[in-house]
């Protein structure tokens, strides 16, 4: 694998994570439990779509085939997507959405923190910009997980159920492969396994305050970040997201 091949794959992973999760979060629009959450979720989705434009834009440049961020977002099929499975899971209830967001934000904040010192200055610049937004997301999703985990009996039970459902999808975020090895050697991106202790510290502190228990199960769902096997959900998401571009090829919008 050449360095550019690895770099392209890595940028797709970054951009597809924010694209797919941003899409999921945007599905809440107008349906949240309180007005403040409608605003916050729209804002989170908006930030993630903005970050997608940067990551996929750079991916297109690195690939060198003239594909724009939009081409990559709207004209690839599921097997070419490189987002982790966690991001494509359906929203479920508000608790599940916020738990998914928190787990992702915790990972993303540690990742971006590392990337700010990447030897690739373009990546470092994007990471710096995105990391301001993500620290705010993390603060918010963490507070909500705490509030609902340590709220009523009902909200506690729902948050524990969300954590039990989502936890098996956490491991994939830290599961490095040949792509990561090439980039780690060049100081461009980390070996994701390295990020795990910091993630565990953030998540551990929040879950403790939320009175929630990490399930004791070693099982890990994988297949998104290498595209080997996405969930059934991704195809449906893409069907909706890509519909106009697919139905009216070549139009400008």
């Amino acid at each position: 694998m050449t360095k550019d091949d690895a770099l392209f794959q890595f940028l797709l992973r970054m951009g597809d994570n924010t694209l797919i999760l941003g899409h999921r979060v945007s599905e809440w629009c107008g349906h949240s439990p309180v007005l403040e959450e409608d605003i916050a979720l729209a804002n989170t989705a908006l930030d993630m779509i903005g970050q997608t434009q940067l990551w996929l834009g750079l991916a297109g440049e690195v690939e060198g085939n003239g594909r724009s961020a939009d081409d990559l977002a709207f004209l690839r099929d599921a097997w070419d997507f490189r987002n982790v499975l966690l991001t494509e899971l359906p929203n479920g209830d508000f608790g599940q959405t916020l738990m998914r967001q928190f787990l992702f934000d915790a990972f993303q904040s540690v990742m971006l923190n590392w990337l700010q010192d990447s030897s690739n200055t373009r990546i470092a610049e994007i990471a710096e910009k995105a990391s301001k937004e993500v620290s705010y997301h993390l603060e918010r999703s963490g507070d909500t997980v705490i509030g609902l985990g340590d709220g009523t009996e009902e909200s506690h039970a729902k948050m524990q159920a969300a954590l039990d459902y989502l936890w098996p999808y956490v491991g994939e975020m830290f599961d490095g492969d040949a792509v990561d090895a090439v980039l780690a050697k060049e100081g461009i991106a980390p070996d994701p396994a390295e990020l795990r202790p910091e993630f565990d510290a953030i998540v551990g502190a929040v879950l403790a305050e939320a009175t929630l228990t990490v399930p004791d199960s070693p099982f890990v769902h994988k297949g998104g970040r290498d595209g080997r096997m996405h969930t059934e959900h991704l195809g449906h998401l893409l069907t909706q997201m890509q519909w106009l571009q697919r139905a009216y090829p070549g139009a400008t919008w």
Binding site: G30, S32, D93, F94, L148, D150, T152, E154
Partner: peptide
């Protein structure tokens, strides 16, 4: 639906 489905969230945050 948004209001009813969100009741547990509002109650949980208030209780916290």
């Amino acid at each position: 639906k948004a209001w009813e489905d969100g009741a547990w969230v509002r109650d949980g945050l208030l209780a916290h």
